[in-house]
Nucleic acid binder design. Structure first.
Length: 267
DNA sequence: TTGGACTTTCCTGATT
DNA sequence: TAATCAGGAAAGTCCA
């Protein structure tokens, strides 16, 4: 497998670049993906070089030999990359396809997205996402991370840019209870992990406690997460009234008065 | 640099 | 006996 950059692409490469002379991954990828990629450059605006750069870094991150990826299949810019479906990724990258798809999806919604829109009052429905979240193309059974969904945009004036308004997107599920809530609100995506016991009262039960813990650990990049640790964090929510105790029932929790967004009327 | 919020880790003991 | 719950304590991470 060889990398054959186009002439245009070569002109975009730093002079010292080569697949084997990549910057220190541990340094570059610190905080990946929320810092380097999603903050400095939205995927849909990437150049071909940046697409390859991303490919290389995902491979490095997961310690996969980059030669396993047919880079020529990704001879495209970020906008084209974003238009690929899950199946397209599998066709283009084989067994690594799901990993790449997942990584790109994460990039789209992690970190903050600033959309300069001028001094207008913007409704979420009026925003044009040129790199839409392709969740509809997730295959059945694929683990879904609810935190990939965007929050409703928060408009905030930026003092340094008078006359302009910035829309800032924050990823959902920043906190554990929000992560749990979002799983509950998307049961079709994660069948059998957690289920409502009493929807109106906010009572829910863990069905696969360890699986949820692993999903949480995956989100936090912590492979040693267990349900025991997760449940300790859950118990801290009792004091803050984000959760309420449900006595006598194992794996059962209830949203408290300070939990937001779980009621159907709040959706 | 510091402090607060939040999470993780480890622990002991109780309960199911 | 194993799994889970409860909560103290301390440390780690992130952010303002």
């Amino acid at each position: 497998m060889s990398i054959t950059p186009s002439t245009i692409l070569e002109s975009q490469l730093p002079t010292t670049w080569s697949p084997n002379s990549y910057p220190d991954v541990s340094m570059v990828m610190s905080g990946y993906p929320s810092r380097l990629w999603s903050h400095d450059s939205q995927p849909q605006y990437w150049s071909k070089y940046q697409v390859w750069e991303w490919l290389q870094q995902v491979m490095d991150m997961h310690q996969i030999d980059a030669s396993n990826i047919p880079f020529q299949n990704f001879d495209m810019d970020g906008r084209q990359l974003c238009s690929l479906s899950y199946q397209d990724f599998i066709r283009a990258a084989g067994s690594v396809g799901p990993l790449l798809f997942h990584s790109l999806t994460e990039l789209k919604w992690s970190g903050q997205y600033h959309v300069e829109i001028g001094q207008l009052e913007i409704k979420p429905s009026e925003l044009d996402f040129s790199c839409p979240f392709p969740d509809a193309s997730y295959p059945p059974g694929e683990i879904y991370d609810p935190s990939f969904q965007p929050l409703a945009p928060v408009a905030s004036p930026t003092p340094s840019s008078p006359g302009k308004t910035f829309i800032t997107f924050y990823p959902r599920g920043t906190h554990l209870w929000e992560f749990i809530r979002d799983i509950l609100l998307n049961p079709e995506r994660n069948p059998g992990l957690i289920k409502w016991e009493d929807r109106t009262e906010g009572v829910f039960r863990f069905l696969k406690s360890e699986a949820v813990a692993q999903l949480w650990g995956k989100k936090k990049n912590n492979s040693s997460m267990t349900y025991e640790k997760l449940s300790r964090a859950m118990r801290y929510y009792y004091k803050r009234e984000i959760l309420e105790r449900v006595d006598g029932r194992r794996l059962v929790y209830k949203f408290g008065r300070n939990a937001r967004g779980w009621r159907e009327s709040e959706k």
